[in-house]
């Protein structure tokens, strides 16, 4: 009698459990459907750089005119246009280390002590006041990556400027936008992971002329066997930038 009762209870429990699982499964299905339809509706957005990517306006202690320093010459009126100074003249650490660093005040003074024409303008005066007081200018960070990201400026400069002979402004501009037309720099790209990956997924030729001899390493970065292009030598495999997780995630 007791055994019979127990079997019945067992059956009931089993039934309940099945029902519970079924309910959970159907919830999952509905959820999946909603998620997929939501994705389909959003998938019309194709551009990676949207106006929303524009970073906040950063208030700097001195309103530094990037356009005046790095902008193009103005052939008609040389006093108005830019001076086409290479980004790396002031941002000198970008090609030497992982971080670009902030140009020291000494760098500004180095030139400006011999430029008498702007010596008495308010911003330059402020510059020299700080110099005389031996105080650094407290520049604010505009492009701030999260702490868990391992980004290396040096590698990118070496890759694009030194190996591929791209103009510095173009190479820097991939991530920093059109700085030569800005006064105070402002973030123009989203600098999100998807945005980084959108470039690392492109078929860059890793074995650039005069580039690093990396042997068959390039193949590995793709995570798949790349389809060998017709008539190409095995060394000329087109591959992406590094894209395994630990390359960028600390």
């Amino acid at each position: 009698m007791l055994g019979c009762l127990l079997t019945w209870v067992d059956c009931l429990l089993g039934e309940l459990l099945t029902m519970y699982r079924f309910i959970r499964f159907s919830t999952l299905l509905v959820g999946l459907f909603v998620a997929i339809s939501g994705f389909a509706a959003d998938s019309t957005v194709a551009t990676l750089t949207t106006p929303d990517d524009l970073g906040p306006e950063v208030k700097q202690p001195i309103e530094f005119p990037h356009n005046r320093h790095a902008g193009n010459h103005n052939p008609t009126d040389p006093t108005k246009g830019g001076m086409e100074i290479d980004c790396q003249y002031c941002h000198t650490y970008a090609r030497r280390s992982a971080v670009a660093g902030i140009p020291p005040l000494q760098k500004c003074i180095g030139c400006h002590k011999s430029i008498d024409s702007v010596r008495e303008t308010p911003r330059i005066k402020q510059l020299f006041e700080a110099w005389d007081a031996k105080k650094p200018i407290e520049w604010k960070k505009v492009h701030d990556l999260p702490d868990f990201v391992r980004f290396n400026h040096e590698r990118h400069i070496k890759r694009f400027v030194e190996q591929q002979n791209r103009p510095t402004q173009e190479a820097c501009g991939y991530c920093h936008g059109d700085v030569k037309n800005m006064t105070v720099a402002r973030r123009q790209k989203s600098l999100s992971m998807g945005w980084c990956a959108s470039c690392h997924e492109k078929a860059h030729s890793v074995t650039a002329p005069g580039g690093t001899p990396i042997g068959k390493q390039a193949y590995w970065y793709t995570f798949q066997k790349p389809a060998a292009a017709a008539g190409s030598t095995p060394d000329a495999i087109k591959a992406q930038g590094p894209n395994d997780c630990w390359q960028c995630h600390k």
Binding site: F148, W220, Y221, F223, D244, C245, W246, Q247, H249
Partner: peptide, 15 residues
Amino acid sequence: TNHTPDGLNSQIYNR
């Protein structure tokens, strides 16, 4: 957690 090309077993905390 993924395998890297260098044969390491990566762990991505954000993920």
